[in-house]
Design a protein around this nucleic acid. Structure first.
Lengths: 288, 288
DNA sequence: TTGCTCCTCACGTCACGTGAGGTGGC
DNA sequence: TTGCTCCTCACGTCACGTGAGGTGGC
C-alpha cells in the first residue's frame, strides 16, 4: 500500500490529480482511512493509472476515459479509437503546417527578405454565394477589372430584384486558366444558405470548405495592391513548402466606386501541404 | 466599417471571441458607440485579427500575443518563435508516437493477438538513486535473482547506516550486455536529490530523464511475471515502430521476502521512435 | 519542537461557450 | 409587430494549480 504522495511519484502525476481522479470516481483509492481521510493505493492500481494517463495524452476527456475503462464494449472501443486516430492524423497535419509557418516567419526575419510577412494560414468555411461568371482572358486588374466591375453591378441588381441581402463583402473567384482559354471570373457575394433562388443572370453556388488557405490583407489603391501581390504570395507558398491549389480569391473587404480610392483586399489562396490531398475548390451550382 | 457580426464572419471567429479580445485590449474595435455600446471594426483591422488567430494556433497565449504584436523587438520575436518551434517539434514527435500507440491498440483489438494490451508509453523523470552494481552473466530471474537479492540487502544496510530514507521502491537497472560479457546489474532505490553521500559499497547515481519508455505492470510470482514479459514487451516495441534503447528497468512496486509470493512489477523500457535520437540511458556516478 | 505529509474547502487559471434579460433599427 | 442583431452581466466548462488553515506521526 502506498500513500498518495508515493503513488503519485510512481505514476508520474501530481497529488492533486490523484485527488481529482478520486473525486470523479475514475480512480478511487483502495482504502480511505475513515478517521483521517488519508488515501491509500495498492501497487496493482498502477495499471489503471497508467492507462488513464495514456488515454488522457491521446486526447480523451476524463469522463470518456471512465467510460472507456469501465463499461465499454470492444465494438465501441474500436470506434472511439478509430475516431481518435483520424483526429490525431488531422492534428499532426495541422501541427506540421504550423511548424512550417513558424519557420517561415523565422526565415523572413533572419533574411530580412522582401517576402510578405503578413501571410497567415487559415481555414475557409463552406460558403453559399450568388455569383455571375464571365469569360476572361488573363489575370491581373487590367484584364479583370473591365469584366468584374459590370458583373458586380449586375449582381447587385439581381440581389435587389430577388430581395436577397448579402451577408458578406464582394469577392471574385475563378475557374479554369488562361492557358487553355477557359478562364472564368466570377463576381460573387455570400448569401444565407437558406436562400432558394436568385434572378438571372446570377446563379447560386456552394464553395466547399477549404482546410487551409494562405491569406494576405492589403490596403491601397487597386494598382498598389496588385502590383506584386500574387507573385509574392505565390513565392511565399512555394518557399514554405506548400502547393497552391486552383487560383486565389479576391475579397473586397472595403470597397469603393472610385477605381483610384484606397480599398482593402484580402486574397485567399487555397493550399495543400506535401502528401496532402488537394481540397475541392470547384464551385458547385445549386439547383433548387 | 463592419458590425461585430460581420467582422466575426470575415475573420472566421466567434462574436464572443472578438468581445474577449476587446476586453483584453488585444483588438479594440475602431469605434464604440457611446450610447449603445455597439462595436464597429475597420476592414484594415482584419490583418491584426488574422495575426492573432495565427499566433493563437501556433500555441501562444493571448497575453503573449498582445506582447508579440505590440512592443516586441525583432530579437525577442526571433527568440520566442525559435522556442515555439522547438516545442512544436516535440509536440509533433509526441503526436506521432501517440498515434502509433492508438494504432497499436486497434491492431491488438482487431487481431485479438496475444500481445500485451496493457503497455503504456510514458516519460521517466530524472532520478537520483543509491545503487550497488554487480557483474551478471545473463538476463532472466534465474541469472539475476541470485545476484540482486543479496545486493538489495546490502543496499538496505548501506542506506540504514547512512541514515538515508529511500523515496521509492526497489528497482534494478542494467549496463552493458551479456554478449560482450560486461553486463552489470544494479540494485537501486531512489533517494532525495539533496543526499550528498552514501556508505560503501553503495554509490550515488543520476539516471537522466527519458522522454519515452514502454511500460507494463504485472502481478504474480516472480516466475509468472517474467515467463514471457521481456519477449512480449520487446515484440510490442518493435511491432509498434519503436526501437528499444538499452535494457529495461525492473521496478518492484510491491515486494516480498518470499520468492514465491505474489508481487507487482513494473518494467520500464526506454524506447525511441524512428528518426529520433536515442536518449542517454547511462547512469552517471555522482561524486560529491 | 521542527519538518514533512496529508486533509478539506475554495478560489484562480485560460479561453472562451452559453444563457438571461434587455435594447435598437428595419 | 416580428426578426434579427447587438449589448452587459454572470455563471459554466475543463483539468487541474495554488494557497489557506488545520491535522497526524516521527
Amino acid at each position: 500500500m502506498y500513500t498518495i504522495g508515493e503513488f503519485a511519484r510512481l505514476g508520474g502525476v501530481s497529488i492533486r490529480m490523484l485527488r481529482h481522479y478520486d473525486e470523479l470516481g475514475l480512480l478511487p483509492p483502495a482504502l480511505v482511512d475513515p478517521d483521517t481521510g488519508y488515501r491509500s493505493y495498492r501497487a496493482s492500481q498502477l495499471t489503471r493509472l497508467n492507462r488513464i494517463v495514456a488515454l488522457k495524452d491521446v486526447g480523451f476527456a476524463l469522463r470518456q476515459i471512465r467510460h472507456l475503462l469501465d463499461d465499454v464494449t470492444v465494438e465501441e472501443l474500436r470506434g472511439m479509437l478509430a475516431l481518435r486516430r483520424a483526429q490525431l492524423e488531422d492534428d499532426l497535419a495541422e501541427g506540421s503546417a504550423r511548424l512550417r509557418g513558424v519557420e517561415a516567419r523565422l526565415r523572413a526575419i533572419e533574411q530580412e527578405e522582401s517576402m510578405p510577412d503578413d501571410v497567415s494560414i487559415k481555414p475557409l468555411p463552406q460558403q453559399c454565394v450568388a455569383a455571375i461568371g464571365r469569360r476572361a482572358h488573363g489575370f491581373g486588374p487590367e484584364n479583370l477589372a473591365p469584366i468584374l466591375s459590370p458583373a458586380y453591378l449586375d449582381l447587385e441588381a439581381c440581389l435587389a430584384r430577388s430581395h436577397v441581402a448579402p451577408i458578406g463583402p464582394r469577392f471574385a473567384f475563378y475557374t479554369g486558366d488562361s492557358e487553355t482559354n477557359d478562364l472564368f471570373a466570377f463576381a460573387a457575394r455570400p448569401v444565407d444558405e437558406r436562400v432558394m433562388q436568385i434572378q438571372s443572370p446570377a446563379e447560386l453556388y456552394v464553395l466547399d470548405a477549404i482546410p487551409r488557405a494562405a491569406t494576405v490583407v492589403r490596403e491601397g489603391t487597386l494598382e498598389q495592391i496588385y502590383s506584386n501581390l500574387y507573385a509574392d504570395l505565390g513565392r511565399w507558398i512555394e518557399e514554405n513548402g506548400f502547393e497552391p491549389v486552383g487560383s486565389g480569391r479576391d475579397v473586397l473587404v472595403e470597397d469603393s466606386e472610385d477605381p483610384d480610392a484606397v480599398i482593402v483586399v484580402e486574397v485567399q489562396w487555397p493550399i495543400r501541404g506535401p502528401d496532402e490531398p488537394a481540397p475541392d475548390v470547384a464551385p458547385k451550382r445549386v439547383a433548387r
